[in-house]
Write a protein that binds this DNA or RNA. Sequence first.
DNA 1: ACAGCGTTGTAATAAATTTGACATTATTCT
DNA 2: AGAATAATGTCAAATTTATTACAACGCTGT
Lengths: 290, 290
Amino acid sequence: MAEPTLTISDRIQQELDRLTRAERQLAHSILENYPASGLGPLTALAKDANVSTPTVARMVQKLGFKGYPEFQNELREELKAKAKNPIAKHDTWTEGAPSGHVLNRFTDAVIDNIRHTLGQIEPETFDRACALIADTAHPLYIVGGRITHTMAEYLFLHAQIIRPRVTHIQSTSNAWPHYLLDVGEGDVFVIFDVRRYENNTLKLAEMAHARGAKIILFTDQWRSPVHSLADICFSSRIVAPSAWDSAAATLLLVESVISAMQDINWEDTKDRAERLEDMFDQTRLFRKFT
Amino acid sequence: MAEPTLTISDRIQQELDRLTRAERQLAHSILENYPASGLGPLTALAKDANVSTPTVARMVQKLGFKGYPEFQNELREELKAKAKNPIAKHDTWTEGAPSGHVLNRFTDAVIDNIRHTLGQIEPETFDRACALIADTAHPLYIVGGRITHTMAEYLFLHAQIIRPRVTHIQSTSNAWPHYLLDVGEGDVFVIFDVRRYENNTLKLAEMAHARGAKIILFTDQWRSPVHSLADICFSSRIVAPSAWDSAAATLLLVESVISAMQDINWEDTKDRAERLEDMFDQTRLFRKFT
DNA sequence: ACAGCGTTGTAATAAATTTGACATTATTCT
DNA sequence: AGAATAATGTCAAATTTATTACAACGCTGT
C-alpha cells in the first residue's frame, strides 16, 4: 500500500492559489495553529477565521473530503502518526523479513512499550528511587513473583556487586516470611508484581509496610494492588503480540536503575567489583582470554 | 497569571488511583494515543476503550471539566501551546529530564542495541531456530550462566507452558553433568553465554555437542567460544552507558522466540495454558479480580 | 451602468453528539 | 450469605454541530 505521505497542511498550501478570498482567510487560520484549530468544532473555526460556517464546509469538500468530520478524522490520524513516528522510521527492523514477521511486530511493540513507559516517568521520582536503592544505610530486599523473579534476580545480581546488605526473596517460595523477621523501620523493598498479581506478593508487601519499610514497586500499566502501599511506583507497558506479556520495558528500567546506582556509589562499587574479580580469578570460573 | 502547567495527561495519571475500573480502562485508552484519541467524538472514544458513553462523560467531570467539549478544548489548548514551544520536545524519552539523564542515555543505547541486533539477523535463521525449539520430538535444554541464567529461566518459564520436555540447567551449578546423562542425538540446547564467557558453559556445550545435540546460542557481539559448536548463533549488542552490559536486546530476541513458538504449537499451547490456569485457580495463587 | 456569474453569508433543517435518568450488575461490608 | 453501596450500561431527551437551500453581495466585462 503506497502511503500518500501528503499531510493536510501540504494539501492546503498546494491549493492555496485556487482558493477564494474567504477560503484563503480560513486556510491561514487553520495553518496558524495547526493542527489544533482544525480539531475543534466547525463553528469555532469559522468564527476564528471570520468566515461563515458554510465556507468551512465548502472548503473541506474542495480539499476532497466528504465532510468536516472526515477532515477532522484525517487530522487526528496525522497526529497519531506524528506521535509514533520519531522512532518508527524503521519500516522493518530485520532486513529481508516482511513487516508482518514476528521479529518486526514484536520489536515495534517493545519500542512502543518503552516509549510509553518512559513517557510516564518523572525524572525526580526515578532519582529518588535510585537514591533509596543505593542507600547503604538500610538493608535492601528485592522481591519477585512467578515470572518476575527473573527481573528481581537480575537486579539482585548487580545490586549485590554494588552494595552490601542485599537480599533476594521469591514470594513464590513459602520461606518468605522468614526473611521478614529482621525487617525494620526504613528498610527498602523493591517489589516486582505484574499481571496475574500474586497474593503472596501482596501479603509480603503488607507485612513489610506494617514494619515501616519503604516500598518501590515495579508493575505494569494496570498496577498491582501493592501500589497503594508503595512509596514509589513504576508502571511499564507490557503489551505484546503474544499470549504473554513483554518484560523488555521493565528490564530497561531495571538496568537504568543499576546504572544510576553505580554512579551514586562509584567509589564503593569500583572497590567491590575489583575484589569480585580477584575472587573470580581464584575460582577459575571464567576464561581468561577470548 | 499562574499557569497550572499541569497537562491533562498529568492529571489523568495523578488521578489514576482514584478512578474506577472502567474509568482506568478509558484513561489508558486516552493516554495510548495522546492527545489524538481525546480529540475525537466522545462516542468513538468510548467504543475504543470498550466502555459506555456516560462513563466518558462522568470521568471528564471527575477530572474537573464541565463537560466533554470543555475537556476537548483544553486538550486543543495544550496542543497549541506545545506547537508554539520552540523546544522540540521529542528528543528525550522522559519528558522533563535532560538528555544527559541516565534514563535518556540508557534508552538511547538500548534502542541502538536493538537496531543493530535485529539488523544482523536473517529471518530464515530465526525461523529455523524457532522450529527447532518448538519441536516436541526432541527434549529441550535451556542453559544459562552467572547472569544469563535469568534470561534462560525467563525462556524456560514460558517454554514450559508451551511444550513438554523442557529442562533448565544452570551451568554455574555443579550438578549440571547429571543432566547430560540422558542427552542424545538430536536433542536441542539453547545456551546463553555473554561476556565473561564461562568455562562451565563451554564444557557443557562441548559435551552436549559430542552427544549429537543441536546447539542454539545466544551470545553478544564478540561471540562466546561456544559459537564454533553452535548450529545457530544469535549475537546481540549489549553495550550500555554502565559498567555492566544490557540484556535488553537479548530479552527481546527471547520474547520473540517465545511468541513464534506459541504460534507454531498453538493448539497445544492453548490446551496447556488452559490446564495451567485451572491449576492456578485451585492453588489460589493469584488474585481473581482487580 | 448593469447583466451575469461566482462568492459569501443567513437561516432553517438534518444529523450527530453529549448528557441525564434509570435499571442492572458488580463489589463491599457486616 | 445477604444487604447496602457503588459502578456501569441502556435508553431517551436535549443540546450542539454540520449541512443544505437560498438570498444578498460584489466583482467583471460589455
